[in-house]
Amino acid sequence: DATRCSICQKTGEVLHEVSNGSVVHRLCSDSCFSKFRANK
Score class of each variant (00 low, 15 high):
residue 36 F to T: 08
residue 6 S to M: 04
residue 13 E to S: 07
residue 36 F to Y: 06
residue 10 K to T: 05
residue 30 D to K: 09
residue 21 G to T: 04
residue 28 C to V: 01
residue 39 N to W: 08
residue 25 H to D: 10
residue 12 G to D: 05
residue 15 L to T: 08
residue 5 C to D: 01
residue 24 V to F: 05
residue 28 C to K: 01
residue 6 S to P: 12
residue 12 G to K: 09
residue 33 F to D: 12
residue 1 D to P: 05
residue 5 C to W: 00
residue 2 A to R: 10
residue 33 F to V: 12
residue 5 C to H: 03
residue 3 T to W: 10
residue 22 S to G: 12
residue 20 N to L: 08
residue 3 T to D: 10
residue 7 I to F: 09
residue 29 S to L: 01
residue 31 S to C: 08
residue 11 T to R: 05
residue 33 F to Q: 15
residue 37 R to A: 12
residue 11 T to G: 09
residue 31 S to R: 13
residue 15 L to F: 10
residue 5 C to S: 00
residue 24 V to H: 11
residue 13 E to Y: 03
residue 4 R to A: 07
residue 18 V to L: 08
residue 28 C to G: 02
residue 37 R to H: 14
residue 37 R to N: 14
residue 35 K to H: 11
residue 32 C to Y: 03
residue 9 Q to W: 06
residue 40 K to P: 09
residue 2 A to F: 15
residue 25 H to G: 08
residue 27 L to P: 03
residue 35 K to G: 10
residue 5 C to Y: 00
residue 1 D to V: 14
residue 15 L to G: 08
residue 15 L to P: 11
residue 20 N to D: 15
residue 16 H to Q: 11
residue 23 V to P: 04
residue 31 S to L: 11
residue 40 K to R: 13
residue 15 L to M: 14
residue 8 C to N: 01
residue 15 L to N: 11
residue 4 R to K: 06
residue 40 K to Y: 10
residue 22 S to L: 07
residue 40 K to S: 14
residue 28 C to Q: 01
residue 9 Q to G: 08
residue 12 G to I: 07
residue 3 T to S: 11
residue 13 E to P: 06
residue 35 K to A: 14
residue 4 R to C: 12
residue 20 N to E: 13
residue 10 K to F: 02
residue 26 R to F: 08
residue 29 S to D: 04
residue 1 D to W: 03
residue 39 N to P: 13
residue 23 V to M: 14
residue 34 S to I: 09
residue 21 G to I: 00
residue 7 I to Q: 14
residue 6 S to R: 06
residue 23 V to K: 14
residue 26 R to N: 07
residue 14 V to W: 02
residue 2 A to G: 08
residue 1 D to A: 08
residue 22 S to W: 03
residue 8 C to I: 00
residue 31 S to T: 13
residue 30 D to P: 04
residue 10 K to M: 06
residue 29 S to C: 02
residue 22 S to N: 13
residue 16 H to V: 03
residue 24 V to P: 08
residue 9 Q to D: 05
residue 39 N to K: 15
residue 25 H to P: 04
residue 13 E to L: 04
residue 8 C to S: 00
residue 39 N to A: 12
residue 14 V to E: 03
residue 36 F to L: 13
residue 8 C to A: 00
residue 17 E to T: 10
residue 11 T to Y: 12
residue 31 S to D: 14
residue 1 D to F: 07
residue 29 S to G: 05
residue 13 E to D: 07
residue 21 G to L: 05
residue 20 N to T: 13
residue 27 L to H: 04
residue 22 S to Y: 05
residue 26 R to D: 02
residue 8 C to E: 01
residue 14 V to I: 11
residue 3 T to A: 04
residue 24 V to N: 09
residue 28 C to Y: 00
residue 22 S to K: 12
residue 38 A to K: 06
residue 29 S to N: 02
residue 17 E to Y: 00
residue 10 K to E: 10
residue 26 R to M: 09
residue 28 C to S: 01
residue 30 D to Q: 10
residue 21 G to K: 07
residue 24 V to E: 11
residue 7 I to D: 04
residue 17 E to N: 05
residue 31 S to M: 12
residue 6 S to I: 12
residue 18 V to W: 06
residue 11 T to V: 03
residue 14 V to M: 11
residue 28 C to L: 00
residue 40 K to W: 09
residue 8 C to M: 00
residue 21 G to P: 04
residue 5 C to P: 00
residue 30 D to G: 05
residue 35 K to R: 14
residue 19 S to K: 15
residue 19 S to L: 06
residue 1 D to Q: 06
residue 14 V to D: 06
residue 39 N to G: 12
residue 31 S to P: 11
residue 10 K to W: 03
residue 29 S to E: 05
residue 23 V to C: 00
residue 9 Q to K: 11
residue 36 F to D: 10
residue 29 S to Y: 00
residue 23 V to F: 12
residue 4 R to L: 05
residue 4 R to F: 15
residue 3 T to L: 10
residue 10 K to G: 10
residue 1 D to S: 11
residue 7 I to W: 07
residue 10 K to S: 06
residue 24 V to G: 06
residue 11 T to K: 04
residue 38 A to P: 04
residue 27 L to Y: 11
residue 39 N to F: 15
residue 3 T to Y: 11
residue 32 C to W: 00
residue 27 L to K: 05
residue 34 S to W: 08
residue 9 Q to A: 02
residue 31 S to K: 14
residue 3 T to R: 11
residue 27 L to D: 02
residue 25 H to F: 06
residue 18 V to C: 07
residue 9 Q to C: 07
residue 3 T to F: 08
residue 25 H to L: 06
residue 30 D to N: 01
residue 25 H to Y: 04
residue 21 G to R: 04
residue 17 E to P: 01
residue 4 R to Y: 14
residue 34 S to C: 01
residue 35 K to L: 09
residue 21 G to W: 01
residue 8 C to W: 00
residue 18 V to M: 06
residue 19 S to D: 10
residue 37 R to I: 03
residue 18 V to T: 08
residue 34 S to M: 11
residue 27 L to F: 12
residue 8 C to V: 00
residue 37 R to L: 05
residue 31 S to W: 07
residue 14 V to H: 01
residue 29 S to Q: 03
residue 20 N to G: 07
residue 20 N to V: 05
residue 5 C to L: 01
residue 29 S to A: 04
residue 1 D to M: 14
residue 10 K to N: 02
residue 24 V to M: 13
residue 40 K to F: 09
residue 26 R to C: 05
residue 17 E to S: 08
residue 5 C to T: 01
residue 9 Q to N: 05
residue 26 R to P: 10
residue 5 C to I: 01
residue 25 H to V: 03
residue 20 N to A: 10
residue 26 R to Q: 14
residue 18 V to I: 10
residue 27 L to M: 13
residue 27 L to T: 10
residue 34 S to E: 15
residue 10 K to Q: 07
residue 17 E to Q: 09
residue 11 T to E: 09
residue 6 S to T: 14
residue 26 R to H: 10
residue 37 R to S: 13
residue 7 I to A: 05
residue 35 K to E: 15
residue 16 H to M: 02
residue 33 F to P: 08
residue 9 Q to H: 07
residue 18 V to A: 08
residue 27 L to Q: 05
residue 29 S to M: 02
residue 24 V to R: 09
residue 35 K to T: 13
residue 39 N to I: 12
residue 33 F to S: 12
residue 21 G to F: 04
residue 34 S to N: 12
residue 35 K to P: 03
residue 7 I to T: 07
residue 29 S to K: 02
residue 26 R to G: 09
residue 7 I to R: 06
